[in-house]
Amino acid sequence: MNFFRLTADLMHLMSIFVLLLKIQKTRSCSGISFKTQLLYAVVFVTRYLDLPKWISLYNTLMKIFFIATSIYILYLMKVKFRATYDPSQDTFRIEFLLGACLLLALVFNYSFSFIEVLWTFSIYLEAVAILPQLFMLSRTGEAETITTHYLFALGAYRGLYLLNWIWRFYTENYADLIVWIAGAIQTALYSDFFYIYYKK
């Protein structure tokens, strides 16, 4: 564990807290893409199938946290504050993302096993999971400040992971090509958002 990775994980945690706070305080999930949240839940569930495999207490607790909160957010959006969610704004076709990521995971993976292919799938899917949210934002044109904070925290989390990989490459010879390529694409998508955001 290094500084970049820990800070990245904490930013990731913070993004989720910001999102939960926004929904609870405003009692509304307007401006939030259910499809993006659904994709994140799929990402966490398919990636953390190795939950029984012990790495560290930190690792296990974080995995449980991510799975639990992502499903809880789906519950808030689909059940508790259902009336505040406007599906007509959330029109991105996620079937294509899911299909393309699954296909890529079946072809490009480290080993062709159930757990490993789903892990790879989750890496590819996380890279593009924000697209419905960005699409929704570009359609409505305006984002609440809190939604922007949410996206900022998520973007910072991704940027810090890039620095973490550079750090790990030099300090422990760590290399993970699948994660790096997907991560670079994911960070580029956020950079695009920041660019649009600051231009406005």
């Binding site: 994980d9 790495i55 991510f66 994660v179």
Partner: peptide, 10 residues
Amino acid sequence: EETPAKHDEL
């Protein structure tokens, strides 16, 4: 080694 340490990140 079936699974190397590569999946130690979140």
